[in-house]
Simulated assay, not measured.
Amino acid sequence: MYSGNCTNCTTCGSCQQSPNVDTPILFCMHCQPSDAPCLKACRENAIKVLGGAVTIDGDKCTKCRDCVEVCPIKVIKI
């Protein structure tokens, strides 16, 4: 299920995520924050940049899955 871009570094935490989680979890450094499709797709402004990583604010996320659809490496699980 891993993308060809995965190096098994465990930095983004996607390896530890499970599908259909109650609270979306993301700490991804794959995309440059200025180019992150998920950040641009989020209508609720629930996706933020924290220390150079793209993260999801579970309190703001409505689980619409727009970010899941645009993620180029499919690491967002909701």
Rank of each mutant, 00 (worst) to 15 (best):
N5D: 08
K74I: 13
Q32A: 01
A36M: 07
C31N: 01
V21A: 09
L39G: 02
F27D: 13
I78N: 14
C61W: 04
V54Q: 10
D35F: 05
M29N: 10
P37D: 09
V68G: 09
K48C: 06
P72C: 12
P33N: 00
N5S: 09
V75R: 11
L26G: 05
G51S: 12
G52S: 08
T11S: 11
I25E: 07
D57V: 05
T7C: 12
V75T: 14
C67E: 12
N5F: 11
P19A: 03
L50H: 01
D22I: 11
C38A: 15
C38V: 15
Q16V: 02
M1H: 10
P24V: 10
C67A: 08
P19M: 03
C12N: 03
A53H: 05
S3K: 14
Y2P: 13
C71N: 04
K63L: 15
D22V: 05
V75C: 07
T55I: 11
P37E: 02
N8L: 13
G52R: 09
C71D: 06
D35S: 05
T7H: 06
F27Q: 14
T11K: 14
P24H: 06
S3C: 15
I76T: 02
G58F: 00
T23Q: 12
M29E: 07
Y2I: 15
Q16T: 00
H30Q: 11
S18D: 00
C61P: 01
T23E: 09
I25K: 15
T23H: 11
T7N: 05
Q16I: 06
P37Q: 08
N20P: 04
K74G: 14
R43G: 13
K48P: 00
C38N: 06
Q17N: 13
K40V: 04
C64M: 05
F27H: 12
Q16W: 03
L50V: 06
G13V: 04
A41G: 08
P19Y: 04
S3N: 15
C6R: 03
M1N: 10
G52T: 02
P33D: 00
P33Y: 00
R65A: 08
E69L: 06
P19G: 02
C38M: 15
I76Y: 04
G52M: 04
V21I: 06
C9F: 01
Q16H: 07
I76W: 02
N45I: 03
V68A: 14
V54T: 14
I73R: 13
D59Y: 04
V54E: 03
V21F: 06
N45E: 14
C31D: 07
G51V: 10
P72H: 07
P72E: 11
I47W: 06
T23I: 13
N45M: 02
T55Q: 11
C31G: 00
A41D: 08
T55R: 12
S34C: 11
N8D: 13
A46P: 01
K60M: 03
C42I: 08
A41K: 02
C64E: 09
R65L: 09
K63H: 06
